[in-house]
């Protein structure tokens, strides 16, 4: 996994709560056996009209928002199905981070496993960011994982966490910044696994 230190990118605002993984990528497109190639189907049903043409009203089809690398949404982002394809589709499209006021747990874990940064901010800051992004196509956020701060060029400068639990935040920050592979980490404890199996 690539390491993540900081990222500056254009914001794509998605002002909704409870964005579920069926919206992020509908089940019809989960049939691929590879990890890549899911980007074209990201938010498929919102992004495309019934005839398959782009829906001009959807944010990902609007200029400047289509090149966003920071998706900003609201509460309970990524609820529903465990499909990691949702994270793969977001990353395949080019997103590096998702900013929301809370994340559904399975999506949250899947993000960590793939190096998609889940940034948790209070609602008031989310509202500020959404307002600025809606008003100004091409609006950018700077996300600094080392110092856990989000800032923009208009005076926003706020701390964030990537998990509500502080020790989980610290651990996941460490693994993301170092691009650590969790299977590799666990296999270092192979003697303990052997021991557990012997005792049980």
């Amino acid at each position: 996994m690539d390491s993540f230190n900081n990222h500056k990118g254009v914001v794509t605002p998605l002002d909704r709560s409870n964005v579920d993984t069926d919206q992020i990528i509908p089940a019809e497109y989960l049939k691929r056996v590879e990890r890549n190639g899911f980007g074209p189907f990201l938010f498929n049903d919102w992004r495309k009209l019934p005839d398959g043409k782009p829906n001009p009203d959807f944010i990902l089809n609007k200029s400047f928002y289509d090149i966003g690398t920071v998706l900003v949404s609201r509460r309970n982002f990524g609820s529903g199905s465990s499909r990691e394809h949702a994270v793969w589709a977001l990353m395949d499209h080019g997103f590096k981070a998702v900013v929301a006021s809370s994340f559904a747990e399975i999506f949250h874990k899947n993000s960590f496993e793939n190096g998609l940064l889940p940034v948790i901010l209070p609602d008031e800051h989310i509202s500020t960011i959404l307002d600025r992004a809606n008003a100004q196509p091409g609006y950018q956020l700077f996300i600094d994982l080392e110092n856990c701060e989000v800032s923009d060029d208009h005076g926003l400068h706020v701390p964030f966490v990537i998990h509500e639990d502080s020790s989980t935040h610290d651990f996941r920050r460490h693994t993301l910044m170092n691009g650590l592979d969790s299977i590799g980490l666990t296999l270092k404890q192979e003697n303990k696994i052997d021991q557990y199996e012997k005792n049980n």
Partner: peptide, 20 residues
């Protein structure tokens, strides 16, 4: 416990799961 695919791979390889 429900898993995403990376954790499926983790369990296949190690028979263990990292959990908060």
């Amino acid at each position: 416990i429900p898993l995403g695919t990376s954790q499926v791979e983790h369990v296949l390889a190690t028979q263990c799961l990292l959990q908060e």
